[in-house]
Design a protein around this nucleic acid. Structure first.
Lengths: 338, 338
DNA sequence: GACTGGCACTTGACCAGGGAGAGTGCCAGC
DNA sequence: GCTGGCACTCTCCCTGGTCAAGTGCCAGTC
């Protein structure tokens, strides 16, 4: 028995099942693929593949469907990378170009990714903790109000308005601004936060109440977990295509979307480049019939955050992987250009 | 035949149907309500109500279900306002308190509204065009880059970074800042935008290229439709409860969520206070089995934007209306306190 | 005139039974 | 090692019959 042909059979099963959503039998498999052998031979191969755990029968005398292990094998060794069509590339490009700020980039990429893959797309906002401080501004507003603005290397702008105990004089504001700038620009946010803490005592005791509230607010902004955890989700309408089984396929995903924590964990666990997690590999029991394709994105070598799609294990992996990879690259480039 | 009792019957039908999701017949209706008459009498009333279009039979010899017109009558004349429980009030309050900025307020209110109503919640971000300019800042960054910050009366902060053709000198920046401030603070954004346009010519010809790009960017920000159209959606997992009929109940709502334009229209059409639109009243054929409960929110008398829920026509109107109203009031108050 | 009890009628929901079709496993033969 | 053939096993789908819920209507009562 040829080992190669057996893998061809597995590939054919995955492709057919993805296309038709129905268990594939030996005859219909031969209708769609030229394998040069008879159904009986295929049946033998199938039996062997089933022994090894790559495929299974939903019930005796139905066709076979791939197991998670089968999909894994397909993704690792059998799938030929499907390049994006020029039209798709252009779609990404035109869709992302013209974004006015980081929020806009994220929201546009969610949409384009959902549209390309026909799945649920999730994009994590660029991580604050992994970027550096590019600019800091302290502006006195009317009364004792002060506007603090932080611009990070990824182009993200965070601002906060605080009310001080008393109105600061112009001199102090400008002094604080320049010394904070001095201490933090170029630093990674967590380190910048530490530096700030050391700074308070270098001011005159009189000024400390004001300086302290400015510095602690900034510090909070630097280490703000909320911003670090923000994600955008799109393409929920595509859930409709996940197949008919509402309870096992659609409901868990809706719940995961609601529980953003779960999504963040899903994205966060992806180590680096293009990652595919199938069924139980997601680490969430309720997502057992779901697969996550994700990729880190960032500037050059430095990963800023992760984006990806959630879909049924029965998905077109080559196409999805190509789309996720391409969008990740484009987004990285957008942020680099700023 | 007593007109009052007929309306009681209608109310009972709506309440039972909302509770059980099943067509309600004359006998089971009497099991749950003390109406003091026999089933046969109820049947006569039902027949009359059906003639008038308030209820209908899904098929001969099933119980009755309310029509849109029946729900409308219920909402307008039969529903007794259900006050929120103290626990619910507290939930809203604790959930919304502690929001750090406007974005946060919006996101938290979506969550709390979804949780209270068990429906899909949508909250429109405070409209830019309906607020006034509170503060404007122009800050020179490194090189020829300039940071523009606009703070609106609703506490929203919009910022934009632009690259000028040449590095502006300090004097010019501060001049531009003060004259823009002079011209726009206190104005509504659309008017502020007009004022800016008139300003360019008051600068020396040499400075105009720089001033022009600053002013046009600000002007764009003032009239930025994207921000005006932003909405947050939450509680999609509650779609699960909409009932079993995927195609008519769940799919259209998912699609509407995706098409934010539709949602915006839904919210935008609400005239003022608490509005309920039932089935075809939404103006969208695909939402014929859906009802929208919405309310404008704002500071004092001035409406800033709209929030609401989307749910099945078969929903608990009194509870939903109470929740939407309460959240709208709290959000308004939060923004007023800033 | 309004309400009630009774009765015949309609109809979807819920089985049970019986093909039909798809697919399998296995075996003997090439 | 591959193939054709055959018996076997399921699910799917259709049919028919029973059941319960609910209705409409009519004659009778207060």
């Amino acid at each position: 028995m040829s080992d190669d042909r057996r893998l061809d059979v597995l590939r054919a099963i995955v492709e057919d099942y993805v296309a038709t959503q129905e268990p594939v039998g030996s005859r219909s498999l031969l209708d769609r693929h030229q394998l040069g052998v008879s159904p009986a031979t295929i049946r033998n191969d199938m039996a062997a593949l089933e022994d090894e755990g790559y495929i299974m029968q939903p019930h005796t005398s139905a066709g076979r469907i791939p197991t998670d292990k089968g999909y894994r094998m397909f993704v690792d060794r059998l799938a030929t990378v499907k390049a994006l069509s020029p039209a798709e590339r252009r779609a990404i490009e035109t869709f992302l170009t013209g974004a006015v700020d980081v929020d806009d980039v994220v929201q546009r990429s969610v949409r384009v990714l959902a549209q390309l893959t026909n799945q649920v797309a999730i994009v994590q906002y660029p991580s604050l903790t992994r970027s550096t401080v590019r600019h800091i501004e302290v502006v006195a507003l009317e009364g004792a109000r002060v506007l603090l603005v932080v611009i990070t290397s990824s182009g993200r702008v965070e601002q906060r308005i605080i009310e001080l105990v008393e109105t600061p004089n112009e001199q102090l504001v400008s002094d604080v601004r320049s010394r904070i700038t001095q201490a933090t620009v170029g630093q990674r946010l967590p380190e910048a936060s530490l530096r700030l803490a050391d700074m308070i005592e270098t001011f005159a005791p009189n000024d400390r109440p004001i300086v302290t509230s400015i510095v602690t607010t900034l510090s909070q902004t630097f280490t703000n977990e909320r911003s670090d955890e923000r994600i955008a989700v799109g393409g929920t309408a595509n859930l409709v295509r996940f197949g008919s089984d509402f309870d096992t396929a659609i409901k868990p995903v809706l719940e995961a979307i609601e529980e953003q924590v779960v999504l963040l964990k899903l994205l966060g666990e992806a180590t680096g480049g293009l990652t595919v997690r199938i069924g139980s590999e997601t680490g969430h029991e309720s997502l057992s019939s779901t697969a996550v394709v994700s990729s880190a994105y960032g500037l050059d070598d430095q990963a800023l955050a992760t984006l990806g799609t959630v879909g049924p294990t029965r998905m077109d992996y080559p196409a999805t992987m190509a789309a996720v990879g391409a969008v990740a690259r484009y987004v990285g480039r957008m942020l680099a250009d700023n």
